[in-house]
Write a protein that binds this DNA or RNA. Structure first.
Length: 427
RNA sequence: UCCGCGAUAGCUCAAUGGUGGAGCAUUCGGCUGUUAACCGAAGGGUUGCAGGUUCGAGCCCUGCUCGCGGAGCCA
């Protein structure tokens, strides 16, 4: 692997990879090889290699698959600090006229060639950070005795009854829908296991066309029995700190490739500021926004609020009218739901949405009726309130928005290898 | 769904209503330390599609298609 090449200084090694870029100056050629772990400049001097190999090194195109043998040498001028004095070159397979050149390209072209664009150093850096975030998510919950539960992707009815879902035929049973959240099923699992999380793809058929939306994205949803809203917020802030600090520790080089300013990320330490919806409305009005009490916060509202803080901010106790049916109302004021959203700094918006769930059978049944949801579809969910109901809470974190925020991306489409968007489902 | 902007060489972009160009990529030549290398040369075009105005349309008008940015909805 190229990232380990420094351990072999002075020795002859053979490296396999793809030709990232090539420069030449008469009798000397510089071939930059990449293998996914790093980049290695390989030097071909005329005379040091055979005429035949020198000729091949001259002809091969960008992204040709190569096997290069040579001696590792520390070299300050080379990116990475080491380079290879090549003695041999084997072409595994040739590549000609690779579409993505080192020069500028437009977004349409890059998205059409997403399968090839992934090879660029920027995309490689993003994918590595995405992986580190995924690993941090799993480590965090695993270390705290949460059990990973996998919830169904095909569901018989809308989970929350709010968003538009993708629909499909399900044999003789009628319509089925792609899940928008595993939460309801996670609640059932939490009643079995205490502390659980699910982590998988979810689907939204809304015709959202913004830099923050995908139709298919990944969400992690912890659910905890015997936990109230406050416990939920404690968990959320510890979770975010863990994720961000893990990435800072292990992926600083990749963040540098992306040109990410790290100051805001370094601030992500407990405690995170907590404000109520009422306080959020006050902030908006102080900033000259004519905000009507009772509305949900829009994208620009979220940016204004998050700009008041140097780290993510938790907004809790939203008007129950704008939130989902399963959220417990505040016993001190029925107008509010015991909900919490976490807004990322720098305008990245809502990355976490959570709540304490309604645990009373009669109240939940009333909510289902008020929202005109079919009771039959929720009988099993109501059962959870019938057989040993307990206060419980959880939240969902959108992976792509988190990746975008940590990486400082302009658009979520770069945060996942093959984004699915309203006007694009290829490649 | 609504508002705004755009579509010219493989890619990124120029071109006053009057003979469509440049850089990169490709091919050929030059250069023994390049950093998106550089220098010289060559090939490369139904200007998104359909119609209209005009002596003449890449440019003006209408419709369509596709894309981009934003709003709403949401994570």
């Amino acid at each position: 692997m190229i990232k380990e090449v420094g351990k072999f200084a002075g020795q002859e090694v053979t490296v396999k990879g793809w030709l990232y870029n090539k420069r030449s100056s008469g009798k000397i050629k510089f071939l930059i090889l990449r293998d996914g772990t790093g980049y290695l400049q390989c030097i071909f001097f005329k005379g040091a290699v055979s005429e035949e190999i020198f000729e091949i090194a001259d002809k091969i195109g960008q992204e040709s698959a190569l096997e290069i043998t040579g001696k590792v040498r520390a070299e300050g001028r080379a990116p990475g600090g080491f380079e290879l004095d090549a003695t041999n070159l084997k072409v595994i397979s040739e590549s000609h006229e690779f579409p993505i050149t080192p020069k500028d390209h437009g977004i349409e072209f890059l998205m059409d060639n997403r399968h090839l664009w992934l090879r660029s150093n920027r995309q490689v850096a993003i994918l590595k950070i995405r992986h580190r975030i995924t690993k941090a998510i799993r480590d965090f919950f695993d270390e705290r005795d949460f059990i990973l539960v996998d919830t169904p992707i095909l569901t018989p009815a809308a989970c929350e009854g709010t968003s538009t879902l993708f629909e499909t035929e399900y044999f003789d049973l009628g319509k089925a829908y792609l899940t928008q959240s595993g939460q309801l099923y996670a609640e059932a699992n939490a009643m079995a296991l205490g502390k659980v999380y699910n982590f998988g793809p979810v689907f939204r058929a809304e015709k959202s066309k913004t830099r923050r939306h995908l139709t298919e994205f990944w969400m992690v949803e912890p659910e905890v029995a015997f936990a109230d809203l406050n416990d939920n917020m404690n968990l959320a802030e510890e979770f975010l700190e863990y994720i961000v600090q893990s990435v800072l520790q292990d992926r600083e080089e990749e963040l540098k490739v992306l040109g990410r300013d790290l100051t805001m990320l370094k601030n992500v330490k407990r405690p995170l500021p907590r404000i109520s919806y009422d306080e959020a409305v006050e902030i908006l009005r102080k900033n000259g926004i004519d905000f009507e009490w009772g509305n949900d916060l829009g994208g620009t509202d979220e940016t204004i609020i998050s700009n008041q803080f140097d780290r993510p901010v938790m907004v809790h106790r939203y008007p129950s009218a704008v939130k989902a049916f399963y959220m417990k109302h505040d016993p001190e004021n029925d107008k509010f739901a015991l909900a919490v959203d976490v807004l990322a700094p720098e305008g990245y918006g809502e990355i976490i949405g959570g709540s304490q769930r309604e645990d009373n059978f009669d109240v939940l049944l009333k909510r289902i009726e008020e929202h005109n949801l079919p009771r039959e579809a929720f009988e099993w969910y109501l059962d959870l309130r019938k057989y040993g109901s307990v206060p419980h809470s959880g939240f969902g974190l959108g992976l792509e928005r988190t990746v975008s925020w940590i990486c400082g991306l302009e658009h979520v489409r770069e945060s996942i290898p093959f984004p699915r968007m309203i006007y694009r489902n290829t490649p």
